[in-house]
Nucleic acid binder design. Structure first.
Lengths: 345, 345
DNA sequence: CTGAAAGCGCTAACAC
DNA sequence: GTGTTAGCGCTTTCAG
């Protein structure tokens, strides 16, 4: 076996010759296009199988499509994304399209690089998951390739969106805690200064939902929001800040599971038991929320459904680039586990 | 803004015209190829900037390279892979190459589909992380495109490999536990029946390393291996099995962190405290091993280094497809945390 | 050092 | 329904 021998690959010409037809005929069969008789199709299919022919995606892209869908994930570490991805690939696995992921897009610059790379490779469509780029950039991308944006609120005429209702998710948690008897429920949010992002990013929505739900329950005076970041460290710091309050809250709603991890650590250090002394809830229902030793109450975003919808919208838009943009909003569900219980007497 | 307007992109012809040179000249500048005067380069570069030109990767691939590296990850959920990926993208971000990931490759069939897709897109090189495909398939891939295989022992003349020394990792754990005074140390392994895979997959090596280390310490009679799988459930079942033993081990070495999670759950259910009654160690030093409430002793595989080496080897092989294949083996390190301590008196 | 011309593998447009 | 032809945007000869 030669290492990476540049052996000439079977091309459409070889198939045409083998099947004794024109390359156009082969091309039509490949694309299931109109204008080939059943006998011709059969003949061509046989030749394709016999020769083990697979079309060169790049060459196809030069005139037609590349049959490639790009998915941009901001952070491969976020255990919530795999669900979305499964939803996408699941919907696409019976199509001709192949999904390829753009890695490590943390920050606007990296996002721009990846989206450019996808456009330069003439991908047929792009799904951007929880992008942080300014809306203008999203619209610029969408103006050159069919695009679906996942996890950003706000709509645009040029791209479709799929989001989970973060306001509803926050109130699921608040209602759950209030139902258990809690009144002093604190929230740890991700600090967001940019005004556009405040309006569009899920984290800000969760904080809004928390406030809204507290007010609806007549707990307006108990509203207590600590601004840190959606990281374990952010949770740790946020909890430290709450521990310094004159009166401790009886429950903490962390804006993300990873934040809850930091909270649990800080509480353990302070000698407080969960949920005996204080209840803790997260958001995203990530893998580690389900881990036995953690068993964190959380909100599930139906990532699979999000992904399925994103794929569906993208295919629709690839088929008709002028159809009006669509916004899909899904509802989250509460997953109660062992970190929440009635407040201490 | 038009939704996905198919506005004609700037091509190499536009750049050539703008700079008043031939397309050949532009091409040479793009590729930093020999045969262009400094003045010409400057002129072309200016034209490229002014027009915002970016070459079409697919078209380039038709004759030359696509400047795309494919990375195949078996399971995006495995929290160990992001480290490797960071190592790869970090090494490549100052090059012209763009990394794209093939998603969800669990199982031979999915792996084959993804590698085919990468080959059909004429990627310049492929990095396969912990593939499960038979070696013949790996070699077939490698024979048509430069390939580096990560996390598979055993060498091939047609692809390079980067592995972490799993035997050494296992003995780090065993020595650590023995050093604390443990003698009855059990191991939970991933069941592997296929003989080739037994020889090449890391999981089998860890079990071998465990046995070897136990023997070296004169603890041969205490060797106790439970075969389940590298999943949380596998850990849970494995622990249940150990709990049914006439004499409980004082320490459990789980072959992977996720397995340890299941073990912790089963032990908690049985009312045993960790590490008071029994010590637990994992492998991979994943994100959740570091989580405060878990704090699992584990083995760190230096994922970043693995990724850096894989990228380096791949670039070398792209530059010289005939250079003899290389095997890199890296050493793991122990990360002691709170789940391991001296055995009960 | 420079550029004209051929061609990579495929699809679209157009004949027949 | 079928085949012929002309590109898509780039790199690679190969003359000059």
């Amino acid at each position: 076996m030669e290492p990476s021998a540049p052996s000439r690959r079977v091309t459409i010409v070889d198939v045409a010759r083998h099947a004794q037809v024109s390359t156009t005929a082969v091309s039509k069969v490949l694309r299931n296009a109109y204008g080939a008789s059943p006998e011709m199709r059969a003949k061509v299919r046989r030749a394709i199988d016999e020769l083990g022919y697979r079309p060169h995606a790049g060459a196809r892209g030069l005139r037609g499509q590349t049959y490639t869908i790009g998915v941009m994930l901001p952070d491969i570490r976020n255990p919530f994304f795999p669900e979305i991805l499964d939803g996408i690939t699941g919907s696409l696995e019976d199509t001709e399209y192949q999904v390829l992921l753009g890695p490590g897009c943390n920050g606007e610059k990296a996002e721009a690089r990846v989206t450019e790379a996808m456009i330069d490779r003439r991908m047929d469509g792009i799904i951007m998951i929880a992008p942080v780029s300014p809306r203008a950039h999203l619209e610029q991308v969408a103006s050159s390739v069919p695009t679906v944006v996942v996890g950003r609120h706000g709509s645009s005429p040029v791209y479709d969106t799929v989001v989970d209702d973060d306001v509803e998710g926050a109130s699921l948690i608040v209602d759950h805690l209030a139902g258990l008897g809690h009144r002093r429920i604190a929230h740890i949010e991700h600090r967001e200064t940019d005004p556009t992002r405040r309006a569009e990013m899920p984290n800000a929505r969760r904080a809004d939902g928390y406030r809204q739900a507290m007010r609806a329950l007549g707990l307006a005076e108990s509203i207590d929001v600590v601004s840190t970041s959606y990281t374990q460290e952010g949770g740790y710091k946020g909890a430290k800040e709450l521990l310094a309050r004159p009166r401790l809250p009886t429950a903490v709603f962390a804006g993300a599971d990873i934040v809850a991890m930091g909270v649990l650590e800080a509480l353990a250090e302070a000698g407080l038991s969960v949920p005996g002394d204080i209840s803790v809830a997260g958001y995203d229902n990530t893998t580690f929320a389900a881990l036995g030793p953690i068993s964190l109450t959380s909100v599930d975003q139906a990532g699979h459904e999000i992904g399925r919808n994103a794929a569906r919208l993208l295919l629709e838009r690839i088929a008709d680039r002028r159809r009006p943009s669509v916004q899909v909003r899904l509802s989250p569900t509460l997953v109660p586990r062992r970190t929440t219980a009635r407040p201490p007497e």
